[in-house]
Amino acid sequence: MSIIKVAVMGACGKMGRFISTGVVNDPELELVAAFDVINEGMNLGALIGISNIDVTIDTDLTKMLNEKKIDVIIDFTNAKALMKNISEIIEKKISVVIGTTGLNEDDINKINQLAMNNSSGVFLAPNFAIGAVLMMKYAQDAAKYFPHVEIIELHHNQKLDAPSGTAIKTLEQIAKVRRPFTQGAEDEFEKIEGSRGGDYEGIRIHSVRLPGYVAHQEVIFGGLGQTLTLRHDSISRESFIPGVMLAVKKVRTWQGLVYGLENILE
């Protein structure tokens, strides 16, 4: 089996460092490049605490793409940076695994078209934790019997977008089996605007942003004389690594964009 050559975008960030460590520790992968807008020329090993890594931080994307042989790029940066760089990456016939959130439907369609035009594979997921994928699956199943449902998602206070990609995907999955209707009392009102949260086809969504959290979500169902709560907690960013590594190993087997970890789990 040939070794997959991997580059990490946003390598100096918290998630980038976890991903870089995951790549280094996987015998089927080789970390060949790391990109960020800071720390030009710094040895990546100094950032992730692994001394025998011969990879330095690149801040010139074009130079990195021209000089390094890369099979797959992993991007956990931000939507603006991703959309700035994605065309140049895919036009090099490099496959991409995306964990960046905040992309809109037009962004996703553009990425898919780029991938199709260049015969490249792209994988995008709102959450790479396998437990979160199971939570979304179980929530969809439960919604068939408990149509009254609200979602609370909780993340660290540096997260820019709200609601989270995981919450949006959960809402979309539930909406496939639940007819749209407005929940709560017919004449309810908010004494503080927004206190009932966002509204997606009558489902209320609440976003919490506080230091100390990583990524957490509750899906709360209400029925006659009972409630049902599904909750997933990522207590460390390490929870995302198995899913990311799986995507890296599979993304070169298709053309175009595949969305959601559930589509590549065996």
Rank of each mutant, 00 (worst) to 15 (best):
M1H: 06
M1G: 11
S2W: 02
I4A: 11
V8E: 04
M9V: 03
A11H: 05
C12N: 14
G13E: 06
G13D: 04
R17T: 07
R17E: 14
F18M: 13
F18W: 07
I19N: 01
V23E: 06
V24W: 05
N25T: 08
D26T: 08
E30H: 13
E30I: 09
L31P: 14
A34T: 05
F35S: 00
I38N: 13
I38W: 08
I38H: 12
N39T: 05
M42A: 15
L47Q: 12
D54L: 08
T56Y: 12
L61Q: 01
T62F: 05
T62P: 01
M64V: 06
E67D: 14
I70C: 13
I74R: 05
T77Y: 02
A79T: 10
K80N: 15
A81V: 14
L82W: 05
L82F: 08
M83Y: 00
M83L: 08
N85H: 08
I86D: 07
I90G: 03
K93H: 14
S95G: 14
V97F: 02
T101V: 14
E105Q: 10
I108R: 04
K110Q: 11
N112Y: 03
S120P: 10
S120N: 04
F123H: 09
L124P: 10
F128M: 14
G131V: 02
V133Q: 10
A139D: 04
Q140W: 04
A143Q: 10
K144H: 07
Y145M: 13
Y145Q: 09
I151T: 13
I151A: 03
E153C: 12
H155P: 00
H156I: 09
K159S: 14
L160C: 09
T166E: 05
T166M: 15
I168H: 06
K169E: 06
K169D: 12
A175C: 12
A185K: 15
E186Y: 13
E188D: 04
E188L: 10
E190L: 01
K191Q: 07
S195A: 11
R196Y: 15
G197A: 06
D199P: 08
I203N: 04
I203A: 07
R204E: 02
H206P: 00
H206I: 11
R209A: 11
P211C: 11
V214T: 11
A215C: 09
E218F: 12
E218K: 09
V219Q: 03
V219A: 08
F221A: 06
G223S: 10
Q226Y: 11
Q226F: 15
L228Q: 08
H232C: 11
H232Q: 14
S234V: 13
I235H: 07
S236Q: 01
E238G: 09
I241W: 00
P242I: 08
P242Y: 00
M245I: 15
A247V: 02
V248A: 03
K249T: 12
K250L: 07
V251K: 05
R252F: 01
R252Q: 15
T253I: 02
W254Q: 00
V258I: 12
N263E: 11
L265G: 01
L265Y: 02
E266D: 15
